[in-house]
Amino acid sequence: MAATASRSEAVKKLQRREAWRRRIPLLPALLFTIVVTQVPFLFSLWYSLTEWKIVPPEPRQFVGVDNYVDLFDSRFFREAVWTSILMTVFAVLLSVILGTLIALLLDRKFFGQGFVRTLLITPFLIMPVVAGLVWKNQMYSATFGVFNWVIEGLGFDRIEFVSRWPLWSIVIVLVWQWTPFMMLIILAGLQGQSASVLEAARVDGASPRATFFQITLPHLRPYLELGVLLGSIYLIQVFDHVAVITGGGPGSTNVPYFVFQRSIGGGWQFGLASAYSIVVVVASIIIATFGLRVLSGLLEGEDPA
């Protein structure tokens, strides 16, 4: 009895030592990561608990959670949150759906496949500011825009897209930029699918539709999740597009732009702005975690037999 006890003790000790042997080489990297990522976060956290305005810059006062209380009382902040949610959800969903459709089209052999793929990827490689400018001036503009040129050619009146649908003007550009990214991820997924599984489905008499929904889509699940996750994390922080296209016009001020307005954009309330950004970080983490759970649950629902 005693022998087995001491033996399991020894095993535990060995396991502990093994665990540390693996951790130690990672420590410097971990420390570096903490310094680079967590320290600024802690600073923000500290600022968010102070009242800090540019005039007068000092003294900074510790005000506890006052900023947070103000923030949730603020109608403008709630609106910005809502705008952020709409913007992210629409942009991510539309780009995932479009990206999947295009990937399905590209996932068959045709002449010039590589060339077409490269062409399709370019929007993703364009700088957000440039994309915003191009769309604002070349596409949406009432005077110079391609859309209005077409609309007028068809005999209708010109439309001020940006002021009429500020949120959608931004979402469309985001979708335009992010569809190629989603397409790439989904395409990788499609090409990783075993050819014989698809042949088995054909022999089993599955229609293309059934094959897509019952075999291809479940296979693509991790790829879709990855696309949604990366897309959400990035798109919740979108700033450039808002700044360039609408400049925060009605209904298009998302949280990052709101934070900017309240701090260096003229509000000069750094404490409050820090509180906003902390809320966004926490919200993103929650959304990313729960969003994925929900999505997995939806796709997992496979009927047995």
């Binding site: 599984v197 042949e199 008499g205 599955a206 229609s207 479940p218 296979h219 037999a305």
Partner: peptide, 19 residues
């Protein structure tokens, strides 16, 4: 070439389900 996302039962029943 089993369908990786389906259970054994679903794999075996797949063709019948299509019919």
């Amino acid at each position: 070439a089993l369908y990786p996302s389906m259970t054994v039962a679903a794999n075996m029943g797949f063709a019948l389900k299509q019919q």
